[in-house]
Computed example of a mutant assay.
Amino acid sequence: MVRLGLIAVSVVLLLLALAWGFQRQLIYLPDTSAVTAGAGVEDVVLETSDGVRLGAWLVPARAPDRGVAVLVANGNGGNRAGRVPLAQALAARGLTVLLFDYRGYGGNDGSPSEQGLARDVRAAQRYLAAYGVPPERTVYFGESLGAAVVTELATSVAPGGLVLRSPFVDLASVGKVHYPFLPVRLLLRDEFPVAERLAGVKAPVAVVYGSADSVVPPEQSRSVAEAAPTLKDLVEIRGADHNDAELAHGPPVVAAVVRIADQL
Rank of each mutant, 00 (worst) to 15 (best):
L90C: 07
Q125C: 13
S113Y: 05
N108M: 06
L90D: 05
Q115K: 13
V68E: 02
A61S: 15
N74M: 14
T96E: 14
R122L: 08
A118F: 13
N108C: 11
A87I: 04
R119V: 01
F100D: 05
Q88D: 14
A118Q: 15
G107I: 04
Y102D: 00
A123C: 14
G106L: 06
R122T: 07
A87F: 09
E114Q: 12
D65S: 09
R93I: 12
V59C: 13
T96Q: 10
D101M: 04
N79C: 12
L98T: 00
G110W: 10
R80L: 15
L58H: 04
A61T: 12
E114H: 05
N108S: 12
R62N: 05
D101G: 00
G104L: 01
A118W: 13
R83W: 10
R103T: 02
W57R: 08
V59I: 14
N108D: 13
R93A: 09
G116W: 08
R119D: 13
R80Y: 06
G106H: 06
L86P: 02
A92N: 10
D101I: 04
Q88W: 01
T96C: 00
V97N: 01
P85E: 08
V72Q: 04
G77S: 15
N108W: 06
R93P: 00
G94P: 08
A118P: 01
R83L: 15
V121D: 09
P60N: 12
G107S: 08
V68W: 01
L90W: 02
R62F: 02
N74F: 02
W57Y: 05
L95V: 06
Q115C: 01
D109C: 01
V84W: 10
A73T: 09
P85G: 08
A81T: 12
V121T: 12
P112D: 11
D120N: 09
P85V: 14
L86R: 03
V70L: 06
L95D: 04
V72D: 07
N79A: 12
A92Y: 08
